[in-house]
């Protein structure tokens, strides 16, 4: 039993890591532009599909993944430039509908480019399982967990130590004040969408070997990322990473111990119950309402 629990914990942390990456992307865009980006899951799907496509062209694996991330980052930038920036001054609901439109558009794009088939992706370094404390760990699990840790560290460094990162952070605190002290807010928006799309693409390339990928697989992943971001307290990057890990572990435990049929339902039930008790998420600060 204990072995099983350890196994579920490892699988949960693996899936949770990808949720954490997706949630980070959500949080970044939300903080800078206050938009809930419903196309976040589609960045994940595009990253995975592009990586599969490039590696199919007999490219070395890591080149394929890097190209996929660059391509998706570029798409994220175009999305900001041609949709979000154009709609300046539109209400938040309109902006959300734009991201919904974009998610449908990206799905359509993937459908045209790669068809309706479910594609598989090679494991980064073989599929020989490592046995550890009675649990079976795939090398891919280690790749996912360690790369997520690296990305989170790099981002933490970027936002706390570099001038550029601090400028983005400043925009997320106060858009107008940042403009006044000479920060190019538009550029920061573009960069944030780019980074967010890039992180999403990496998450996609990482999860594709274990969960397969198709043009419509992004939606559920995006929802889980949104769920993780809310769980951690919307807008809190640290919280969204923890939210992702918690969501992954809870999901894997419940589907392992009870039944996998209601796996998705369980995570949403937990989320609902949590929101009833703590409406601001696990790590969100309660805000007093201004009248």
């Amino acid at each position: 039993m204990l072995q099983n629990i350890f196994q579920f914990l490892i699988t949960g942390l693996t899936v949770g890591s990808t949720y954490a990456l997706i949630a980070l992307g959500f949080t970044l865009i939300f903080n800078v532009s206050h938009v809930v980006n419903f196309a976040q899951g589609e960045f994940v799907m595009l990253g995975a599909m592009a990586a599969i496509f490039f590696s199919g062209l007999k490219m070395p694996l890591f080149l394929a993944i890097i190209l996929a991330i660059i391509l998706t980052t570029f798409i994220g930038i175009l999305f900001e430039k041609f949709a979000i920036e154009r709609a300046k001054g539109a209400s938040l609901t309109s902006l959300i509908i734009i991201t919904i439109g974009a998610s449908i558009f990206f799905r359509g794009l993937a459908l045209v480019l790669w068809g309706k088939n479910t594609l598989s992706f090679q494991h980064f370094s073989g599929e020989n399982p490592i046995r550890f404390l009675g649990a079976t760990i795939l090398p891919q699990h280690l790749w996912i967990i360690s790369l997520t840790a690296i990305v989170v560290t790099v981002l933490a460094y970027f936002f706390s130590k570099t001038l550029f990162g601090k400028a983005i952070l400043a925009c997320s605190y106060n858009n107008k004040a940042s403009k006044l002290i000479g920060i190019n807010v538009n550029l920061m928006l573009v960069v944030s969408y780019g980074i967010s799309a890039g992180i999403g693409a990496l998450a996609g390339a990482l999860i594709a070997p274990i969960s397969y990928m198709s043009y419509d697989a992004g939606t559920m992943l995006g929802l889980k990322g949104f769920c993780a971001a809310i769980l951690g307290g919307m807008g809190n990057s640290f919280g969204s990473v923890l939210g992702g890990l918690i969501l992954g572990v809870v999901e894997s435990m419940t589907s392992g111990i009870f039944s996998s049929a209601y796996k998705d339902a369980v995570s949403f039930i937990i989320l609902l119950l949590l929101l009833f008790v703590r409406p601001q998420g696990l790590f969100g600060k309660g805000v007093s309402e201004r009248v």
């Binding site: 709609a87 539109a90 919904i100 439109g101 974009a102 558009f105 799905r107 359509g108 045209v112």
Partner: peptide, 15 residues
């Protein structure tokens, strides 16, 4: 191309 066009129409309408 149906989905592609549908998505574009949504975005354009809102812009």
């Amino acid at each position: 191309f149906e989905m592609l066009v549908y998505g574009l129409i949504l975005i354009a309408t809102m812009i």
